[in-house]
Amino acid sequence: MIYKKSAGDRLFDTVVYVLSIIVIIVTLYPLIYTFSMTISDPIQAARGNVLLLPKGFSLTALRTVLNDKSIFRYYGNTIWFTVVGTVLGIFVTCLAAYPLSRREFYYRAHVTRFIMVTMFFSGGMIPTFIVVTRFLHLYNSRWSVVLSSLTTAWYIMVARSFFASIPDEIVESARIDGASEFRTFLQIMMPVSKPILAVLALYFAVAHWNSYFSAMLYISDKNLQPLALYIRSVVLQNSMANFADTSARITAAQILSNLQIKYAVIVISVLPMMCVYPFISGNLEKGLMIGSIKG
């Protein structure tokens, strides 16, 4: 693009940059501030002196939160939900998507329609709740969360259109060599479908890591609940009992404010995502496009 650098253009550029910088600031400020509050000196934090960068340095807040050993249990549960949900989710999605992408499968249109219906109609919260807890007896079982959100019609359609775009010759040559349908699926299809597997993995992992609602409905046993419900109880429902008499808090002479504990809980829960993000962000946009337009 060739432009004369006129005064108008320069003004335009300035406006663009100013707006972009505002977007960046607004996006990052809450995250940076939350982090700063967590590692700031409790006195400075309580006085409201922290505005952007940490004032002083103290790990009291983090130590107080980590002193409550139950956070590790919640963390473990979230990891369990994420890993099991992602692995099973990808498996079941591909298991459904592959037959629906094969033209030799005579009934694929019928099955596709059967699955698509669930994109537009759903039983809603209560009937699903009754089925999961009463009829399938999954109340207070980790499987309730994983199985009830195993996959979605949308993911299956995305994976199907990816499989359909793979040249038929690859499948046919495998068949001529005498491979069964399952072998073709596992040994030929799966290896060439790494991009879609990566996209599905990202979608499933993020969804399971962040989900709280089905766990809130189906799991009341605190030993099985995910981290999100822990954050909810500490930050949103103000249950500070876990931190009331920990030694770290007493040595800080009770000045450690509840607010700072809340910030520490938030930081501990988003830290893994923040650590992974720089590595995935490079390929993110490409991956999101595979998953969004086709279908």
């Binding site: 079941v92 999605t93 298991l95 459904a96 099955v111 059967f114 699955i115 669930t118 109609f121 759903s122 039983g123 809603g124 209560i126 009937p127 699903t128 009754i130 089925v131 999961v132 009829f135 399938l136 199985l147 009830s148 195993l150 996959t151 299956i156």
Partner: peptide
């Protein structure tokens, strides 16, 4: 996959 859709999607739909 079909078992999943029947149990967790169609059964609740019937529950309406």
């Amino acid at each position: 996959p079909l078992a999943f859709f029947i149990l967790f999607k169609y059964w609740p739909m019937f529950g309406i």
